Simulated assay, not measured.
Amino acid sequence: MIPGVVAYILNKYAQNHPDWAEQYSRTGYPVLSNAVGFLPSLVKFSVGEWLVVLVLLLLLLYIGYYVRKVIISKGTRRMEVYRGVMGIVAMGSMLYFCFTVLSGLNYHRDSFLSYTEYHEEQYSVAELAELCQSLADDMKPVREELGEDNDLLVQAPDDFDYYTQHAVLSLQMLSKQYPVMARSLYSTPKPVVMSKLMSRAGIEGIFCPFTLESNINVDMPVFMIPAAMTHELAHQCGFMQEDEAGFISFLACMQQDEPMIRYSGLFLAFDHSISALEKVDPDKALEIESSLSQKVQHDMVQNEQYWGKYDGIISNVSTRVNDAYLKANNQTDGVSSYDKMVNLLLAEQRYNLLRTSVSLSKMN
């Protein structure tokens, strides 16, 4: 019980004192996360995935053990029930404490924008349309570099290791511009054996705070994998807000000339941005989508078809659980917070346009 109480107090304090949470994220968290993540980082498989399986197995055995104790006991059944329940509470308390110090407190830190020159403000529909068109224009030549192969669903076995190294490199390159992203230990993303189950749940990647691993769904379209990797690595760097992790993922992918990495980042940004435009100006959104190259349109269709076939009870339950989890961790918009990365993309666009305008005025 005590670890859980301590964790609750720490969370409440961090929520009311973001300066302290930021200080912890930049001092205590890196030390603890490196210590915990070191051993899992030495292997290529996901320790977190098998840890979940082990915990569930032990939990079933534990429940079975106490159910048997209750059945065979006569005068002490209430005591056995009490012991069994308190054991589960104690385990939950310890898990909650570990989650808090290895992840939870980071939800209350300063926004990533505080480390940039961008400012999140109100943006017009015209600016959103301009963003979508700019991303669409950037996607075409990058997609051409990927060759004539129209099927980017299938991934070669060696590709995953290649992208893990480049995903880490992308974060390292980005950290030169934003030192707050720097880490002495980047645990490379891990493939998940039960990726089909992740697809059924509508999940692209999961950051495991107990092993500091970025777990990736390797069954989804390959052009989504690099962006998923950099997104989860952003969480590993201590930025837990989903919109910020998405924005960092985009920035990281743009650090490299490797076409698949860049295309993945652009596809992620365009997918969220065009969805936002469809809500406010569907005609303009359709016009921009129609201007995409046939290959990009084909990729969009394949991506929609892939996730569409897994729509159902499992994905709906998963979405609701994730929504509740995010709201419980200082993200009031829940799953909608993923789409808020568009505001950060618009902030970057406005800043770049203003900087270009100032440079031109100085030249004149």
Rank of each mutant, 00 (worst) to 15 (best):
L174Y: 13
D243S: 12
C208W: 08
M300W: 07
R200T: 00
Y263C: 07
S170Q: 04
S275C: 06
D219N: 12
S275H: 15
I225M: 04
A285W: 09
I206F: 07
Q241N: 07
P226R: 01
I225T: 14
L169E: 11
R200C: 01
I261W: 02
L197I: 06
E242Y: 03
P191T: 03
S293M: 06
S214I: 10
N217C: 06
E242F: 03
Q294D: 09
E287D: 11
C253W: 12
Q177N: 15
M240E: 00
E287C: 08
F270A: 05
L185C: 04
Q297C: 11
D161F: 11
Q255A: 09
S184I: 08
M173N: 14
F267I: 05
L169F: 05
L277Y: 06
I216V: 08
R200P: 00
S275D: 11
K279L: 00
P282E: 07
F207Y: 14
D257K: 11
H235S: 02
E204Q: 05
Q177G: 14
P189M: 07
V180P: 08
V218T: 13
D219Y: 11
S275K: 13
S275A: 09
L169S: 12
Y178E: 15
E242H: 12
I216N: 10
I274E: 02
H235K: 02
V218D: 01
A201T: 08
L292G: 06
V222E: 03
G205Y: 13
T188S: 05
P179L: 14
C237F: 03
S195F: 12
C237S: 08
P226H: 00
L174K: 14
V222H: 01
L286Q: 15
R200V: 00
G238K: 04
M173F: 12
K176N: 14
L197A: 13
